[in-house]
């Protein structure tokens, strides 16, 4: 019974996306056929066309730069903040954690106009840093919550021993705590990367020039001359999603623990 339910949920979760992947391997004729072609002939026509006519590779590259940059920046800031919150005496700690939680609940539309104006004044519209900055801000709360919960679980004696051995606080953080909290840092990194890779709203506002647009913007704005290029959209979507599906299947356990640490334990 439970297995049946689990099977049904798997089917519901995977089948629609599988249809998109199958579509990406069809030919134009197969896509528009009625009844639909269930099994494609295995053509790579759409991938070729997405690469050459729609510049798929440069969207991928932009996404890698923005998502990678965001992940590095967020973790650098997040590790420090989380260590301070987990280990050092910070007055008003519950308030700070609450304020971070609040930020993660802000509707983006309430930030959009002001952030756009700030970036415009700085001349940072259509630049990588212009998109990375809001992403870092919006992913910091999640990263700090996850990291704080991981840091708090490590025994204090470890750093105390390191500090007796002549490490400073900072030395203890870098040499003892970080390696031990490696899984936590990695979990936060995966979640931040997925967020930045998938984000669309700010990318749409800030990146109006094609040369700097990320994958979601590219996929949303794919437009043929007369028709919607479903095949190319499916091919680009498959490329955009494949790394995420790989991450999910490889690190399912970490993602689950990270999401529930961010939401429940906190």
């Amino acid at each position: 019974m439970a297995a049946l339910g689990a099977g049904a949920f798997c089917l519901l979760a995977l089948a629609p996306f599988a249809w998109l992947v199958l579509t990406s391997f069809k030919t134009q004729l197969e896509v528009t056929a009625i009844p639909p072609t269930l099994w494609p002939g295995g053509s790579l026509e759409f991938y070729r066309s997405a690469l050459t006519r729609y510049g798929l590779m440069h969207f991928v590259l932009n996404s890698l730069i923005v998502a990678g940059g965001t992940t590095v920046c967020t973790l650098c800031l997040g590790v420090g903040a989380a260590y301070a919150l987990a280990r050092l005496r910070v007055p008003g700690r519950p308030w700070l954690m609450g304020a971070l939680l609040l930020v993660s609940m802000f509707p983006q539309i309430s930030l959009a106009g002001p952030i756009w104006r700030i970036l415009q004044a700085a001349g940072w519209l259509n630049t990588y840093q212009g998109l990375i900055i809001p992403y870092v801000t919006l992913t910091l709360p999640l990263a700090v919550w996850i990291l704080t919960s991981y840091f708090s679980e490590l025994p204090r004696e470890l750093e105390e021993a390191a500090m007796l051995d002549g490490c400073g606080r900072l030395g203890a953080l870098v040499r003892v705590i970080l390696p031990l909290a490696g899984p936590g840092v990695f979990t936060a990194a995966i979640l931040v990367f997925i967020y930045a890779w998938n984000e669309f709203f700010f990318a749409l506002l800030i990146m109006t020039r094609r040369a700097v647009q990320t994958l979601p913007v590219g996929i949303a704005l794919f437009q043929g001359q007369f028709t919607i290029p479903w095949g190319e959209i499916a091919a680009a979507s498959t490329v955009a999603t494949a790394p995420l599906v790989a991450l999910v299947f490889l690190f399912q356990r970490r993602i689950v623990s990270g999401l529930s640490a961010g939401a429940i334990k906190g």
């Binding site: 689990a6 099977g7 949920f9 798997c10 979760a13 995977l14 629609p16 996306f17 249809w19 998109l20 579509t23 896509v31 528009t32 056929a33 009625i34 639909p36 997925i194 890779w197 998938n198 669309f200 994958l215 979601p216 913007v217 996929i219 949303a220 479903w230 959209i233 499916a234 979507s237 955009a240 999603t241 995420l244 599906v245 991450l247 999910v248 299947f249 399912q252 356990r253 993602i255 689950v256």
Partner: peptide, 30 residues
């Protein structure tokens, strides 16, 4: 573990991709 990962796939898919996917599935002609 595999079932959990499978169920998580929709969560991980970029929303734009999910939107195009449903738009295609709901298309009026094909």
């Amino acid at each position: 573990g595999l079932v959990r990962a499978a169920v998580l796939v929709p969560w991980a898919i970029p929303t734009v991709v999910a939107s195009q996917m449903w738009r295609f599935i709901l298309n009026d002609r094909y």
